[in-house]
């Protein structure tokens, strides 16, 4: 047995670009040992609603998904926002055969969110004290960040100001 030879390999690339009218086009491409697939979505700004979608999916075992276009069109009009994952799954289906294409739609949407997140993060200062202040203010402005990951966990420095304000009844 050659333990240095791969059994399985996967490459997934997601890219986002601005297109005409300020809308965003997000493309997710997947190539793995079994699969060659692509999903393209266009997101209308500033409503952040999916206004166009297309894609293809080829799997060595399953072949193509016969009703792929119908599945993809089901998410037209869905807003890229918190809670979108359950909506996308619910509209497209959750059978094993369809799971990867659903995930790719989600990845396209995450790409859009991360594109906008990146714009915010570019405003962060370079020095450590400035960063602490920047991210402390961020969690105060967006309470959903609080205790959502290790960086913003209860008792950590980035949430100290928020917790102090909470203790005083100010938040």
């Amino acid at each position: 047995m050659s333990n240095n030879i791969l059994k399985f390999a996967m490459n997934r690339n997601t890219s986002v670009e601005k297109i005409n009218g300020g809308n965003l086009r997000s493309v997710c491409r997947l190539r793995d040992t079994f699969t060659d697939a692509e999903v393209v979505i266009e997101v209308k700004m500033p409503d952040m609603e999916i206004c166009a979608i297309s894609g293809y999916f080829r799997h060595a075992g399953w072949g193509e998904i016969e009703d792929l276009d119908r599945r993809l069109q089901a998410v037209m009009g869905v807003r890229v926002a918190a809670g979108m994952l359950k909506i996308i799954k619910g509209l497209m289906g959750e059978e094993e055969k369809i799971q990867q294409i659903v995930y790719m739609v989600e990845e396209c949407c995450h790409g859009v969110i991360l594109t906008l997140t990146r714009k915010v993060l570019l405003k962060a200062p370079d020095d450590e004290a400035g960063k602490v202040s920047f991210y402390s203010n961020m969690v105060k402005k967006s309470i959903r960040l609080y205790d959502r990951c290790a960086a913003f966990a209860k008792g950590t420095p980035l949430v100290a100001e928020l917790e102090a304000e909470k203790a005083k009844g100010g938040a």
Binding site: N3, I5, L6, K7, N13, K18, R118
Partner: peptide, 21 residues
């Protein structure tokens, strides 16, 4: 020009009869 790019690479090797890495 792309505003955002994400690349993910995953590979799986069979370390021995019972184990994947």
């Amino acid at each position: 020009m792309f505003d955002f790019m994400r690349n993910k690479v995953v590979d799986v090797a069979r370390l021995d009869r019972e184990t994947l890495e």
